[in-house]
Structures are given as structure tokens and as C-alpha cells.
Design a protein around this nucleic acid. Sequence first.
DNA 1: CTGAAAGCGCTTACAG
DNA 2: CTGAAAGCGCTTACAG
Lengths: 327, 327
Amino acid sequence: MKPKIEDVAKLAGVSPTTVSRVLNNRGYISNETREKVQKAMNELNYFPNDVARSLFNKRSNLIGVILPTTSNPFFGELTFHIETICAARGYKVLLCNSLNQIDKEEKYLEMLLRNQVDGIIVGTHNRGILDYHKQNLAVVAIDRYLSETIPVVCSDNYEGGKIATELLISEGCQSIVLIDGVGDLETPARLRRKAYIDLLERHGRVPIIYEIPEVFDRQSQQDVISKIFQECPEVDGVFATNDLFASSFINVATSNGRAVPEQIKVVGYDGTETTQTLLPELTTIKQPIDLIAKTAIDLLMKKIEEEVTDLPHESHLPIKLVKGTTA
Amino acid sequence: MKPKIEDVAKLAGVSPTTVSRVLNNRGYISNETREKVQKAMNELNYFPNDVARSLFNKRSNLIGVILPTTSNPFFGELTFHIETICAARGYKVLLCNSLNQIDKEEKYLEMLLRNQVDGIIVGTHNRGILDYHKQNLAVVAIDRYLSETIPVVCSDNYEGGKIATELLISEGCQSIVLIDGVGDLETPARLRRKAYIDLLERHGRVPIIYEIPEVFDRQSQQDVISKIFQECPEVDGVFATNDLFASSFINVATSNGRAVPEQIKVVGYDGTETTQTLLPELTTIKQPIDLIAKTAIDLLMKKIEEEVTDLPHESHLPIKLVKGTTA
DNA sequence: CTGAAAGCGCTTACAG
DNA sequence: CTGAAAGCGCTTACAG
């Protein structure tokens, strides 16, 4: 069996209390004792049981991360950064892929509560707002409004939408279509759409919006996109609110005999490493994914440590236009 | 504060033992008592503390997953499937992005041990073989040989490499280059290279191999690839052992004025959802990522439950050629 | 500088 | 059918 503190104590000829003290570097210990204990720990290949520690300390150093799916490159990269930063700060990540399904989100939330996580980073639908501040748990949202008291971190979506739309306008596009996710959700990412609408109206044009039901199914994406060419054949510019939509559009356009960028210009959103490797020609708005992760964690740590109470409710982080050849 | 079992017991007018029994559905409880207890739990919004349970049960229901990075679409999708399947079976995932750095791997391994994980799925370098069976922990590897006793799950790499190379040969390529990761590691994925070499030699040709140092840096990839055109300008076929390499190659080729597939045919490996959305024209060998995840978890569960001792040491899962237009 | 005792929130024999 | 007691592996006052 795994050695426990008692085994170390016996071997070193001291009390468990003393072993605990050298483990935690707390209180006074003579160097001699410390060395004896350390020798015993090495000999037994002893590792403290963090479950027992958590129970006593009421601190698990566990962070729950709920997001739609790490299969999506944006969330895959976000997860990488979140986990890496957490690890550097002594926190561990319990991962939850909710696929934006409310029932899964609820189950995951309960699971995280049972596991005594110190905090949660949420990047998924989560209507269950009440559930969050019922427990007074540290929570930070990415790209979601959950409640007044839950900070939200996101890229500067309005600015991103503005830059994308302006680019298409300045390149002379006359019929600019927006391809976006479904519109029944009030999220910060919706500001990308708002910027598009604002700009088009300011230029006296009519916004044309196509909504793609779910991000995670290639076929349904293509079906919606195909409709664009039937209903709006004059399209000569597209702002897609994520790069996967943009890519799908380009593929459908190409197979419809429309050349990008000669006949239709396309701008995406996200600019992940993966997109930049697989589709470097895509012009897109790049989110600072590492900074989003870092900001979310900083806020969460502050909530956990209760250092500050007046955290900014919204953090809008700078985006960057990545010029490819599609626009 | 969070309610505990004692609070529920008091409110329901029973002993903690009884509450525990209804919680675990163990032993005889009268319906009346059960209802009283359940009512009290609802009223207090009680959730059992899984940390305390784990401590007693010596079972955390936690699975550690160590892999290079979820930023890579293959591992992002693998992580999604692993976590989803685990969740369905009542297990939780502690995620570790090691970036293939040995020191990180060691730290993560220790962290997982301290946290009393029931098992580990490893998809990263991990020379520290000894560390694994020192503790007699349930471990399953993906695409890595760790030791005699650790089952390894992978796609049928040899078959995949064979199909890819055969395709290029059958399409008339004369100078077929292999783009692979660095060669100092004895992994199952190395069989992709072996199949390529075997086939070329069988056809009386000389293998030409280029090695890319790390998967996670676009610039260094491109530097290596650029060399191909200098040193081997007659190249007319490329088998890249992952899709990111393939994509980088295509991009460099294009900017060198070489047309794919007209002048050079390209086959990749992995065939993730992401690649198929962003680069659907790529011909590639598709790994059954969901099946890899499921197989690894099945094996791990058996190890954890100690149902069987004679598990297959290697599981080679079927790959599939996905015909795009690049070859 | 070191140790015995109590307790973190739960569960499981053991009695009754 | 129900409860009192002991213990999972650790830590922290409290004594000495």
C-alpha cells in the first residue's frame, strides 16, 4: 500500500505532527529532524495525499473548466492556456465538455461542487445563473453574461466586428453577408454582429444575416451556407463570426464556382494557431487567447483569495486583424 | 457554510449514518425515513462532499490525462472524447498539457499521484517508465510504448503509412518525400515511417526523410520544409505524418510556385474534424479518434477494476483513407 | 523544538 | 430498520 504520514513518522522516529511540519515547512524544526524525516520520505517514496489535505484545509486547489468542446480549436487552445497557467500557479484543472447542452452543464456543475473546486471558469451557455451564486463560489465567465456578480472576459468583440466590416466595405464590397451563430443568446460575442449591423446601417445598407444552428456539425453548416447563394447570389463580401464558418463558406463558394477573394471577400474571427496553420490565407480577427485565459484566471484567483471585491465586470481584450489573402 | 451530512441529519431528525445510507442506497431504510432525509437534503441544498468520500473509499473516480497540448487538433479532439466517455461512466478528468517536456511530465505525474487518481491515460513522451509501475497505478498509453505492462492504444499506423505511400506510388509519383517528427523516439507512430520505408525499398527507391523538430512552432516547420525544395527539387509526392505538417508543406509549396496536386501530391495523417473543416481538400489517413479514446478507457477501467489481467498489450485500430484533392 | 488530541466530512462494520 | 463508534490521511491549536 501507499505509505502514509504515519509510516514516515515511524521510520524517522518522530511523530506524525513533526512529519507534517516538515512537509508544510511550518513551525520550528531542527535541521537534524528535518533531514531524518526527508530521508524517510525518500526511502518510502512518500507523497502526501492531497485528498486528505483538501478535506482538512477546505481548499482543493481545483478549478473547474466548463466549455462547449475542446474539439473546437478556439476552446482547445483556450483550454491549453488555462490549464498551463493554472498549473504554474499550483491549481489543477477538472475539464468539462458540455457541448452547450444545458443538462450536461447542470450535471457538470453539480459534479464540480461535490468535488469542492475552489473556482469555475465557464465558457458555455449556462442559463442556470441562479445555481452559480446560490453557492457562493468563485466564478468567472468567458464570453458569457452569467450575472451581475460574475466577471466576464472576452475579446473586444465590437471592435473586431467593426474592423472586419470596415475592411470589407473599404475593399468595395456591395453585398456583405454576416454568418453568425444562432441569435437567441445574449452574449458578448453578439457584439460582433452588432458592429456589423451598426456599420452597414451607417452606410445606408441592409444587413443580411445567416445563422448557423450549431458549431459542431459540418453538414448543417453547409446547408445554411448553400442557401446564401440561392437567396443572395449577389453576395460579394462575408464576415463570418468564427473561422470555421469562414472556412465552410469558402469551400461552398469554391464548389459553386465563386472565386475568393476575386468575386467574394471573406473575413473570419478567432485566428487560432490551428487556423493559421491550416488556413493561413484566411483574413481574420485574432483573439488574444492566451491573454483571455490569463485575465480570467487572474480574476478568478482574486475571487478565490477574496483580495478585492470591486473587480471589473467586463474585460474586453484587444483583437488584431490578421491579413491573409481572402480579404 | 456548506451543509454537511450532520446538518441534514439534524434537520431530518435521524443519525448521520442513516443519511449516509439513503445517500448511498445501502442497507434497509424505511420509506418514511428516506423521504424525511431527502426532504431535508433538498431544503438545505445539500451535496455530498466527494473529497471526504474519496478519502474514505480510497477511490477518487479521477482520471489523469497527460498529453502534449489540447491546442493540437488531434489531442483537442482526443481530449473531448476521453472526457465525454469518462463523464458518462462517472469519472472525472484532470487535464495535463505537458508539451512533451519531461520535467513537466514528471511534475504532472507527481501531482496526479498526490491527488489519488484511479488511473492515467498518457499520450506524451514519458521516458519516466519506472515512475509508472513503481506505484502500481492503472495506466494506459496512447501512441507510446511505456512498458511491458502498460497497454498501448493507437491507430493502425503501419497500415496507414502503407495506404498513404501506395496511393502516391499508384498516382505515379517518382520522388516521394516523408515529412515526420524527430526520429529519436520509439513510438507506434513511427510505424508510419516504417511502412513508407518498406514500400519505397520494395519498389527499389530511396527513402527521403525530413524531420520536423517540434509540432508546436509554425516557423521551424516551415524552415525544414523550405529545405526540401532546395535539396530535393524533384519532389513530386509527399507523405506527411500529420495534417499540420501536410498543410505547412502545401503552403510552402504554393509560395514556391509548385501546384498541389498537379506538380506535387500530398497525403497527410490524422483526419481530425478540424482539418476536415478547414482543409477539406487534403487527402489524409483518418484516425478513429473516438474509438481510440473508448478503447483506452475500456482498458483503463479493466485495470482499475482488476477484472482481467491479460489485456492485449497493443491495440491497433482501423484507419481510413479520406480522399481529398491533394492526392 | 516536539508530540497527543481533536477534527475535516464522510462510510462501514458492529450492535441493538 | 436505526445509531454510536471508529477511521480514511492529513493538519492545527494546545501543551510541554
